[in-house]
């Protein structure tokens, strides 16, 4: 089957300079296709989060080449990368990072308002739709800071989805949640990947979470140990 290539990393390397020069990533190469739910696993300090931030285009200080949906992002200007992130990448973090003064609905709407693809009414309707998808339609008008941790994380996912991104990236998206909420987040990701054909790349140290994803890339000391660890399949 011919699958659409979403992200391609070619020989990515990175150094940390503080306290001493130290190579954290070493010739990382792999590909991610559309509709895949990929998890990045590895011990603390293996470089998995560092890699994710390079893939997210937020960290530009690296060697090698990164290609997102046919577009080379290496060496692009910050403003170009910001526009690319706005349109094509959604983020979910361990700490929910909602803007606490805004309502849930507004939080979800912000990336779309930045993009400006739809009118305000359309954006609002779409934001409701995303919140409904995550079962939060009743909380839409509450301030983000009034919600529980699990609810906030789901609002963050709705926000990541608002611009229909090509890729959703998660940094320990369940790291701060109890098992019930972790399950909800996992199911949502799975649903997004399989029903909506979204691509998901998530860093996790939760083995249970990783095992149930489509594919796991395992890292150790800055190198990839395996790119296609498929649990139980």
């Amino acid at each position: 089957m011919q699958r659409e290539l979403m992200l391609e990393a070619e020989k990515i390397g990175k150094y940390f300079y503080d306290p001493i020069k130290f190579r954290v990533l070493n010739d990382i190469s792999f590909k991610v296709y559309r509709g895949e739910f990929v998890t990045l696993v590895g011990k603390s300090g293996s470089g998995k989060s560092t890699l994710l931030y390079i893939l997210s285009t937020m960290d530009t200080d690296y060697e090698g080449k990164l290609n997102i949906h046919g577009q080379v992002t290496t060496g692009q200007k910050q403003n170009t990368l910001a526009a690319l992130r706005n349109e094509k990448i959604g983020f979910v973090f361990q700490f929910h990072y909602l803007l606490p003064e805004f309502s849930c609905l507004k939080n979800v709407m912000i990336p779309a308002l930045r993009l400006g693809k739809y009118s305000r009414q359309e954006i609002e309707a779409r934001a409701y739709q995303k919140l409904t998808l995550l079962g939060l339609q009743d909380q839409a008008l509450k301030p983000a800071s009034k919600l529980s941790g699990g609810q906030q994380q789901r609002v963050a996912i709705a926000r990541a989805l608002i611009n229909d991104p090509l890729i959703i990236m998660g940094d320990e998206p369940t790291g701060n949640l109890d098992s019930k909420n972790s399950q909800i987040v996992f199911d949502t990701f799975k649903q997004l990947a399989h029903e909506y054909n979204q691509t998901i790349i998530a860093v996790t140290h939760d083995n249970d979470f990783a095992e149930r994803s489509d594919r796991t890339i395992e890292m150790q000391d800055g190198v990839i140990v395996s790119t296609a660890k498929e649990f139980g399949k």
């Binding site: 997210s56 937020m58 910050q78 403003n79 910001a82 526009a83 690319l84 992130r85 706005n86 349109e87 983020f91 973090f93 700490f95 990072y97 909602l98 803007l99 912000i110 990336p111 930045r114 993009l115 926000r159």
Partner: peptide, 16 residues
């Protein structure tokens, strides 16, 4: 500072 970080991650440019 967290808001700024998340806004930049979501594609807000420096001048925004």
């Amino acid at each position: 500072i967290n808001d700024i970080a998340i806004l930049k991650a979501m594609g807000f440019r420096g001048r925004d």
